[in-house]
Simulated scan of single mutants.
Amino acid sequence: MESLLSTEQHAQLYDAENIWSADDEFFLAFANERSASRILDLGCGTGRLTLALAAAGHEVTGVDPHPGSLAAARSKPAAETVRWIEGTSAVLNDEAPFDAVLMTSHVVQAITDDTEWARTLLDIYRVLAQGGRLIFDSRDPRSRAWERWTPAQTRNELTLADGTHVQLWIDSAPSDNGLVNITEHRLFADGSREFEDAVLAFRSEQQLRTHLSDAGLHVSSVFGGWHRQPAGHGTGELICIATR
């Protein structure tokens, strides 16, 4: 079904739903532990964190498979300070090694196919410098976040730059093999409606550790929240840091 929103409106909606928060502060602080690094923001979306990394003095490449998201990123102030590439990790061929690869906003959970996930980690290993670091966040299945993704707990109202008013809510249903089906519902001021389906993969801490090890990456830390709480505590996150 064709969306009632334009590509530009989808990007505006994403930015309105995903504002700067504790996770961005965490990833930026992580990157700033090593000054003037060469950083890959894999799954950069509309460039919220990507541009902040560049503003902090890093040499940044943003990669995303969605042309609409990249178009929005390229239209933002100081976008010329970032190298933007449309695609997935597979497009990274003859790159100079990166000091760090970041995958934020739970983007790893959108990679639901195990073969594609394994290939992504191998691609990351290939483009990381020796001693380079990978960091990503994934929701801990032990916290059962999908049980809180109900219409009553997720209802929100947003107004886009052009005045379009949208009411939103989410419902979810767990499937097999750690997958959870998500549906975002949208109700517009004129009474028209649409919905968008997605699937997220919930991988356990042990699964993530095994997958990283299989790709040749050494896991140095797994945190459960943005204040570096142990996994199983904190805010229901699995924030994984691994080195090549």
Rank of each mutant, 00 (worst) to 15 (best):
G68F: 04
A71K: 07
A73T: 09
R74G: 01
S75T: 03
S75R: 13
K76H: 08
K76S: 07
A78G: 02
A78E: 07
A79R: 08
A79S: 15
T81V: 07
V82S: 01
V82R: 03
W84D: 07
W84P: 02
I85S: 04
G87C: 02
G87N: 00
T88R: 01
S89K: 10
S89N: 14
A90K: 09
V91R: 07
V91N: 07
V91Q: 04
V91F: 03
N93F: 05
E95M: 06
A96V: 12
A96Q: 12
P97E: 03
P97I: 01
F98H: 10
D99Y: 11
A100C: 11
V101E: 09
L102I: 14
M103V: 11
T104W: 09
S105W: 12
S105Y: 13
S105R: 09
S105N: 14
H106V: 15
V107L: 14
V107F: 11
V108F: 04
V108P: 06
A110E: 10
D113K: 01
D113E: 12
D113Y: 05
T115L: 13
T115R: 14
T115G: 13
W117P: 00
W117Y: 15
R119L: 02
R119C: 01
R119I: 08
T120A: 15
L122G: 10
I124H: 05
Y125W: 13
V127P: 00
L128V: 01
Q130T: 11
G131A: 07
G132L: 03
R133Q: 01
L134V: 08
L134P: 00
F136P: 01
F136K: 06
F136M: 03
D137E: 11
S138C: 13
S138D: 09
S138F: 02
D140R: 02
D140G: 04
R142Y: 11
R142S: 14
S143F: 15
R144A: 15
R144W: 06
R144K: 14
R148A: 14
W149A: 08
A152G: 05
Q153W: 10
R155S: 13
N156R: 14
T159R: 11
T159Y: 02
T159V: 13
A161V: 12
A161H: 11
G163F: 12
T164K: 14
T164Y: 08
